[in-house]
Design a protein around this nucleic acid. Structure first.
Lengths: 144, 144
DNA sequence: TGCAATTTAATTGTGTACAATTTAATTTTG
DNA sequence: CAAAATTAAATTGTACACAATTAAATTGCA
């Protein structure tokens, strides 16, 4: 087997699937004015209400080089606010706004719609997620 | 179950894994002067020697907006050449150069190194690839 | 205490991604 | 055959990703 053939790579299917999933999200997210990475930030904030940029970076595996400009756009659209932490001035707190909170209602139908569009049954979907998470756990264990 | 929790998404693990794999490739590819998408182009050219931008876009699921500037950089580094097709002037042929051909030797060890770094055994690796490809096949079948 | 080391964001620069539009070539159709 | 429709790349503009550097705050240690 030729290891340098596109069809024999694992890397490419993962890369292609990631972009494919993002493109399926796009029309849904466009309706509520979010990009896909911004949606991931909202998922965190719908759950935690307030996080530091550091925590956000840890959860989404993104650095400040990506998050700073992304959050700037989310502040401009009124979904979050930003302030230096009182305890530690190095940290920046990101808080969800009322507008951001209300957006959750409009997003509830998205996950289900996506599963349908991927045409993957729940069981296959769950197995895939489990397998990928098993691989990601190795990275996680090395980083913390 | 809350569908709008980050940990319950499939989308996020795929997105995270894709970026994780790219970051594992980066140090290897840096040594031979390629980015990850440029490496994908080389995988195609090592196999086919010559393709049109259209074919490349079809194989990698990328459009000319991404490929045109990316290929421009690969021409500048001397890996490929570019010329209008004789039969149909709308098409652009991308050919591998001798330098591009020689680069294959330096890339042979990369796929194996990656599997090791992912710390995933061959069997798990294969199953994951199969599952992802099953999902991607649905998209493929709709597009062609 | 005081200074060096560390930590956190922001900044800078490069390289994708991709929607939307434009331009040029080819194909279809009346 | 000629105009309309289609196709392929290139261009324009927006938004990530991420390495490397910078700046400011905090921590640790002599």
């Amino acid at each position: 087997m030729d290891n340098l053939k596109l069809e024999n790579q694992l890397c490419f299917p993962v890369y292609a699937l990631s972009r494919h999933i993002t493109s399926l999200y796009r029309p849904h997210l466009e309706k509520i004015g979010l990009t896909y990475p911004q949606y991931l930030v909202m998922l965190v904030l719908w759950e935690y209400e307030e996080v530091t940029v550091k925590e956000l970076g840890h959860k989404l595996w993104l650095d400040s080089g990506t998050l700073t400009p992304l959050l700037k756009r989310m502040i401009e659209s009124g979904l979050v606010t930003k302030s230096r932490s009182e305890h530690d001035e190095r940290l920046v707190d990101i808080k969800i706004t009322e507008k951001g909170r209300l957006l959750k209602q409009e997003a509830t139908s998205i996950p289900e719609a996506l599963i349908k569009e991927l045409e993957t049954d729940e069981e296959q979907y769950f197995m895939l997620k489990t397998q990928i998470n098993r691989i990601l756990a190795v990275k996680e264990s090395k980083n913390i």
